[in-house]
Design a protein around this nucleic acid. Structure first.
Length: 508
RNA sequence: GAUCCCGUAGCUCAGUGGUAGAGCAUCUGACUUUUAAUCAGAGGGCCGUAGGUUCGAGACCUACCGGGAUCACCA
């Protein structure tokens, strides 16, 4: 019943909804338009709060505000109401003898309705800055009740919330209600916007160009993941929703752009959990003539710029850890970190030796796991959670990175780093593989794995290989998962809390 | 996909085999500086769905639907 009531169809109005329909008709019969077209607002709630002065109340002697009624306190011939706008809340005060026509309709107003009020600002006996109404009008009649949380500050100054709208399912499915009733969650999304705009500004300031490349792709690539498949009717063939941006952005570097980036959704047809949503936002950037060393410096600078603009500081506290973006980020190779956290040198070991190492470390891996899978498991079980402060993990085995350029001095490794913070990966970068012969061999290897039953191996994209053959200049590429970055910087534990509308199973 | 937990009034929840409850919200009345307004009264439920056990099920059993968490999968 809890769920049902919110989704109730129009044929099944409950008593509260029916009453609002009745009020709507009564308002119309009184000649009141419940849905006027515009309202001229002069002030937001926060502007009034910040500009009001007890010494000079006349500064705000004529203001117009608009917003949603969140509480009504009727005192007989006078009424107080709390109005919420995007900036916050402000109280209004209406007296019957001053506004008789409006007051006659005040019983037809409900929590959830929008109203516009003009008047002067004053401070009540209880000390609350309020708008004394000279004029008031209904701006939108609400037909569906919203749950109202009440807040009280107790004797110790702690904020106590009653009847919070806290059912996670309903909050995600009915985010518009969540945003009304739990306005503090707005800050997470405002920060998300700031983070993305800070990133965009940083790139734009460097002269790199934001581009758009296909989301619907005849082949998918650039990552190891299962795709979503869709169908084009007119051309009668299947298309894939992209799993990564990489291959198209590299084509643009081939085409002569020297710095391109894209911030956009990727789609992966895999499990959902606290850190995975089927559609998620990725930023990828490619800069010509640079390598992964250069990119490490850029990423440090970028993270500081984002922290400055979105947080106003360069450190965040997560649990018992204070994570600093101000200190130089640590740089360590993957195999040095294995040595540091397992005491074992895993470099150059074959599959059987790695399996033995995993067993001796109590790392849980399947007996038929590949060498790369074993390394990956040991890393995630023994190393990752130690990487609290920003750490560039460098130089991965070539088998793990089919699009990264061979290391300039280390046999069998590639020039790649991943940035770890608080035990999670936040960025992935290569010096891009631009040797067309090597690239073709690596993707053919992937294709063989795929034919051998490895569904995660990459699909061979012949056009991409031709582009690399035409010539990709030395290039550094970087990807950052935006949702997880927002989680980190806003202290959210679930990806669903940084997405307005997380993917949900459809209602029955 | 696996396991565990959850689903009772608009919201938050109590009720563990015997007449469906509380607070807030809603409605009616009183009240011209209140603020969780207050005071007095009232209405509101296919107890997620469908079977089963029982004299009797909100509660116990089974399946299903939806959600949460953990795991698996996975950049």
């Amino acid at each position: 019943m809890t769920k049902k009531s919110v989704f109730m169809s129009i044929q099944q109005r409950n008593d509260q909804e029916q009453r609002r329909y009745d009020e709507l008709h009564e308002l119309r019969s009184k000649g009141i338009n419940p849905y006027p077209h515009t309202f001229d607002r002069t002030h937001t709630s926060s502007a009034i709060h910040s500009h009001f002065s007890d010494e000079h109340p006349d500064i705000l002697s004529d203001v117009s505000i608009a917003g949603r009624i969140m509480a009504i306190r009727k005192m007989g011939k006078a009424t107080f109401a709390t109005i919420q706008d995007q900036q916050g809340r402000i109280q209004i005060y209406v007296k019957q003898d001053e506004l008789p026509e409006f007051y006659e309709c005040i019983n037809l107003l409900d929590i959830g309705d929008f109203i516009g009020v003009s008047g002067y600002v004053f401070r009540t006996r209880m000390g609350e800055i309020s708008v004394h109404a000279r004029q008031a009008q209904l701006l939108t009649k609400s037909l569906r009740p919203i749950p109202i949380a009440k807040e009280e500050t107790d004797a110790d100054g702690n904020k106590v919330v009653y009847d919070a709208f806290s059912d996670k399912e309903l909050r995600y499915r009915k985010r518009y209600i969540d945003l009304i009733v739990n306005p503090q969650i707005r800050h997470v999304f405002e920060k998300r916007s700031l983070i993305i705009s800070a990133m965009r500004r940083y790139f734009d300031d460097q002269g790199w160009m934001e581009v758009e490349t296909p989301i619907l792709q005849p082949l998918y690539g650039g990552a190891s993941a299962r795709p979503f498949i869709t169908h084009h009717n007119a051309l009668d063939f299947d298309l894939y929703l992209r799993i990564a941006i990489e291959l198209y952005l590299k084509r643009l570097i081939v085409g002569g752009f020297e710095g391109v980036y894209e911030i956009s959704k990727n789609f992966r047809n895999e499990g959902m959990d606290r850190t995975h949503n089927p559609e998620f936002t990725m930023m990828e950037i490619y800069v010509a003539y640079k390598d992964y060393f250069w990119m490490m410096d850029m990423v440090e600078d970028l993270f500081r710029a984002i922290a400055d603009k979105a947080l106003g500081k360069r450190d965040i506290t997560i649990g018992e850890h204070v994570i600093s973006f101000d200190q130089p980020f640590r740089k360590a190779t993957m195999f040095d970190l294995f040595l540091e956290h397992t005491g074992m040198n895993l470099r150059g070991l074959n599959r059987a030796e790695l399996l033995q190492a995993a067993r001796s470390l109590n790392v849980d891996v399947a007996n038929d796991a590949t060498a790369m899978k074993i390394l990956d498991e040991i890393f995630s079980q023994k190393v990752e959670h130690h990487l609290i402060q920003p750490t560039f993990v460098m130089d991965y085995p070539v088998e793990m990175s089919p699009l990264a350029k061979a290391h300039r001095s280390e046999e069998g490794l590639v020039e790649r780093f991943e940035l770890f913070i608080n035990g999670y990966e936040f960025a992935n970068c290569f010096t891009e593989l631009n040797d067309p012969v090597d690239q073709r061999q690596r993707l053919e290897e992937q294709a063989r794995d795929r034919a051998g039953g490895d569904e995660e191996a990459m699909v061979l994209d012949e056009d991409f290989l031709q582009a690399i053959e035409v010539g990709l200049p030395p290039t550094a590429g970087l990807g950052i998962g935006i949702d997880r970055l927002v989680m980190l910087l806003t202290g959210q534990d679930s990806i669903r809390d940084v997405l307005f509308f997380p993917t949900m199973r459809p209602e029955v």
